[in-house]
């Protein structure tokens, strides 16, 4: 499939990643967190790659690509610009050479990067910059100076702008540079293997850290606390069980709408019954 990519300057592309990574949280939700935000960031690239919706082949490829980027995603907006740029370069390589490029590698790379990049991003922006900026800002504001909030905003905005811009640029350009080197040979296969492992292990880590479901069940006047027993065997066992249950239901082809209803109604029912908290 020869895709005639419209020529768009690098700066235009980078500025699209820039603004759209900032807007990545606009539909943050409990189920897949920033999934639609990531898709929104990919839309210009995907629309350029598959411009002709009357061609059934292109339409199918476009639907598949849109679906691909609706997967669970969560990462600091500023560092997400890097992932957006990289994923866009991968989509472009895939559209050029759909025979030899495994599209699963795109989500594998995204999932591998989101853990480390949000760890770095959150501790830098929320843990460091914010504390410095508002530590100074509050001091000045207490003395009644309007410079307090103004200074705090300046300290916050400058690094944010710089990091987002260069992260997007490096992700996009670096992606193309390395991907062309990876084509041919088994390097791509090796990269896929590494990303597959790192991605799966990250999701395992997220199951243990993001869900945090517990049980308030107690027996014999509070001397037998079920959660303590479970923690003694395996901490976060309930979170793992819930994920396993949902995975099994998805594999059973239960309608996705029903699954959401199960999650909401089931949560309220289990909480009211005193089984989950």
């Amino acid at each position: 499939m020869a895709t005639a990519t419209k020529d768009v300057s690098l700066n235009k592309k980078v500025s699209q990643f820039f603004w759209r990574s900032w807007a990545i949280q606009a539909s943050w939700n409990y189920e897949r967190q920033m999934n639609m935000g990531f898709l929104y960031g990919m839309v210009p690239t995907l629309d350029r790659l598959y411009p002709d919706e009357s061609d059934p082949k292109q339409l199918a490829a476009k639907k598949e690509a849109y679906h691909r980027h609706m997967a669970f995603y969560n990462c600091t907006p500023q560092t997400s610009a890097f992932v957006l740029g990289l994923a866009a370069s991968m989509e472009e390589e895939y559209a050029k050479d759909p025979e030899n490029f495994d599209p699963d590698s795109i989500n594998a790379v995204k999932t591998s990067l989101m853990g480390p990049l949000s760890g770095i991003g959150d501790s830098f922006f929320q843990g460091t910059i914010r504390v410095i900026a508002f530590g100074l800002g509050v001091q000045l504001a207490q003395q009644g100076s309007i410079m307090g909030p103004i200074l705090a905003m300046l300290i916050s905005i400058v690094p944010s702008v710089l990091i987002t811009w260069f992260a997007a640029k490096i992700g996009y350009q670096g992606g193309h540079e390395y991907l062309s080197k990876l084509q041919g040979g088994d390097l791509m296969e090796k990269l896929m293997y590494v990303c597959g492992i790192v991605g799966l292990m990250s999701v395992g880590g997220m199951i243990a850290t993001l869900i945090g479901a517990t049980t308030p069940l107690q027996f014999a006047d509070g001397t037998v606390v079920i959660q303590d027993i479970l923690d003694g065997m395996m901490p976060q066992m309930i979170s793992l069980g819930l994920t396993g249950l949902m995975y099994w239901l998805i594999k059973k082809n239960v309608n996705t709408g029903w699954l959401l209803v199960i999650a909401i109604v089931g949560g309220i029912a289990l909480s009211a019954a005193g089984i989950l908290a």
Partner: peptide
């Protein structure tokens, strides 16, 4: 509690 199950659902979908 529902929000926790929804997070589990999102991660299961990714898996």
């Amino acid at each position: 509690v529902s929000t926790k199950i929804m997070t589990a659902y999102g991660l299961a979908l990714l898996l």
